[in-house]
Write a protein that binds this DNA or RNA. Structure first.
Length: 570
RNA sequence: GCGCCCAUAGCUCAGUGGAUUAGAGCACCGGCCUCCGGAGCCGGUGGCGCAGGUUCGAGUCCUGCUGGGCGCACCA
């Protein structure tokens, strides 16, 4: 239902959809079409402007369901459709049976006024109705530095969370710290060996330990902090398990701190750093298994405890407690997600790497087995990134050995380019990242293209201010001096921002925003090229200043969501 | 062998519920600055991996094939 706080485009659209629904219902009655066969009604923005501001395919869908000629159905529909008191100027049937709606030209000036009025809140909507969502992302193992794919996930997760928040979902960003298990033990061992090495022992560094130089850095730092005596005291603990645990805890802490630093620098801030260890220590795993058992999804076999995930479509059942009594990683994940569900999120969205893609099915199984509706958990797979330079694959890293780190990437191309480039692609698409292009501080680089538009806008407004002109609160009549096609195209694009954001949120596709940003920048440049602002006759100049200001607002808001800076000068 | 992801212009990718004429950037060719930032604008070359199917209509849905990526632990 339309609401006074909704963005103008949303109000217009939902009002029209409601009317269309009524008409479709009436026509369906006439045709004797039972309720389940009635099409869902929606409006789309036609690619071609000549097809109106909105188009509906309802007649074609109705026609198919009732085995009637779509154009004839469209005719009936149009006669039934009540459009008085709306912004629609004319409605027509086109092509195979589309109903194209043309709005009165003045609505666009209302939209412009709204952009300027809402300013830094322009783009927000209530589409999400305040539902509580969680986005969990990055969640890298604290056994080494963040790498390039983490940077991709960080950009996608952060902007997805931002887009959801703007679309009216209450959104939390969470990072899961995997601070226990085999990998952490291995880290403890690697750390110990490096320490001993630094203290003069001859060490054969074994296969399977972490060879990256970051472990040596941590060891060096540790020595500096605690001194040789402190280090020897720790290494002197006889019980290997206890000793390693302590060492591992220290190394994990350092590494997680490093992750935080890099993410901070990247503009990504989490609301919650959730510790796997504290979860495990709280007895959550037992509770989770007990809950599953209560629902009848647990069985014992070969001395292990299994979750019967095949009940929910998995291709095999999964162990949750090993025969040695240790819970599996999956068991921890069940406990973790149960915890999330119990925190009251209507939707939990996880961003995972492709190496975990095969776990999706068992996670969905678990969600249902715990009694939560399907769809409570959504898992988005973020595909690998390949770095290219001069057409060659870049693989080696100074610090980590096999992988290029997130830190190196940011050092190399900067936060803005990194985030923008990652956000230009859909999460699930394999991505070749062109380092040379991202590094260019010039024309060819799309991120600079958009930033340049913002800088140009800012510069123009500054110039205007120097000449004593500023954007004013103009009525629709004054704004209707904007009639050039380039002005109207830009204005129309600006008016779509709330829908664009709500759409990106609903589809979980934050990458749509980079395209929107590029399109907006293009339309601004075109406008700038064909219309003078300063020096135009006063009424036109004043109207154009408002448009320029609106472009500034939109570019700034979008860049903000992308986590890319909006410079006033470049 | 099984499962998942991907395949659109020379290259990297969009294509948002199936819909009227498939887009952008890079690359290449040709134009536009006495004027608010030419880091811009305008024009041109060029494409849906293959084969079927469903439909009034398929880049989009279904099946098969081919090519590439990732998984298939009582590791995480």
């Amino acid at each position: 239902m339309p609401h006074a706080d909704d963005p103008l485009t949303e109000r217009i659209k939902s009002d029209l959809i409601a009317r269309l629904k009524t008409a479709v219902g009436a026509v369906a009655d006439q045709l004797g079409l039972p309720a389940p066969d009635r099409p869902q009604v929606y409006l789309e923005v036609p690619k071609d402007r000549r097809h109106g501001d909105y188009a509906s395919n309802a007649a074609m869908l109705l026609g198919r369901a009732a085995r009637q000629n779509p154009r004839a159905v469209a005719q009936t529909l149009l006669e039934t459709l009540e459009l008085s008191g709306t912004q629609v100027e004319r409605a027509e049937i086109a092509g195979p049976g589309f109903i194209n709606l043309h709005l009165k030209p003045t609505w666009i000036y209302d939209a412009l006024r709204e952009v300027v009025r809402l300013d830094e809140d322009y783009g927000r909507s209530r589409a999400g109705g305040g539902q509580k969502f969680q986005v969990e992302f990055v969640s890298a193992n604290p056994t080494g530095p963040l790498v390039v794919v983490n940077a991709r996930a960080a950009a996608l997760g952060d902007t997805l969370a931002g887009v959801l928040a703007w679309a009216g979902y209450e959104t939390q960003r969470e990072y899961y710290v995997d601070n226990m298990g085999t990998q952490v033990d291995t880290l403890g061992k690697s750390f110990e060996l490096r320490l001993r090495e630094l203290l003069g022992e001859t060490i054969e560094f074994p296969e399977g330990c972490y060879p990256g130089s970051y472990v040596i850095d941590i060891a060096k730092e540790f020595l500096k902090e605690r001194g040789e005596a402190g280090a020897r005291r720790l290494l002197g603990i006889d019980d290997e398990k206890a000793r390693r645990r302590e060492l591992a805890a220290h190394a994990v802490e350092r590494i997680v701190a490093g992750h935080k630093d890099q993410l901070d620098r990247y503009g990504v801030h989490f609301d919650e750093w959730f510790s796997q260890k504290s979860l495990a220590e709280s007895g959550a795993v037992d509770r989770a298994v007990t809950t599953l058992r209560k629902h009848g999804h647990i069985f014992e076999q070969d001395g292990a405890v299994w979750f019967r995930s095949t009940t929910f479509g998995d291709d095999k059942d999964r162990v949750v407690v090993r025969s040695n009594g240790e819970p599996t990683y999956f068991a921890l994940d069940i406990a973790y997600h149960l915890n999330k569900f119990e925190r009251g999120f209507q939707k939990v969205i996880d961003l995972w790497g492709p190496d975990h893609a095969s776990h999706v099915t068992r996670m969905m199984a678990m969600t249902q087995a715990l009694g939560y509706p399907q769809g409570t958990l959504e898992i988005l797979i973020v595909q690998w990134v390949r770095l290219l330079s001069q057409g060659q694959l870049v693989k080696m890293s100074k610090r980590a050995g096999d992988f290029v780190t997130m830190e190196e990437l940011i050092d190399e191309v900067g936060k803005d380019a990194a985030r923008f480039f990652f956000l230009m692609r859909a999460a699930e698409s394999h991505l070749d990242f062109d380092l040379d292009l991202a590094k260019l501080k010039t024309a060819d680089n799309p991120v600079f293209y958009v930033q340049y538009a913002h800088a140009r806008v800012s510069s123009l407004l500054k110039q205007a201010a120097q000449e004593g002109f500023a954007p004013q609160d103009l009525p629709v009549e004054a704004l209707s001096r904007l009639t050039d096609p380039s002005e109207l195209e830009l204005l129309r694009k600006l008016s779509y921002l709330p829908e664009e954001i709500a759409g990106a949120a609903a589809a979980r596709e934050p990458h749509r925003l980079t395209r929107y940003a590029i399109d907006t920048a293009t339309l601004f440049h075109k406008f700038y090229d064909s219309c003078r602002v300063l020096g135009a006759e006063p009424e036109v100049r004043d109207a154009r200043l408002v448009l320029v200001d609106a472009a500034r607002i939109v570019l700034r808001n979008v860049l903000g969501l992308l986590g890319v800076s909006a410079p006033e000068r470049m």
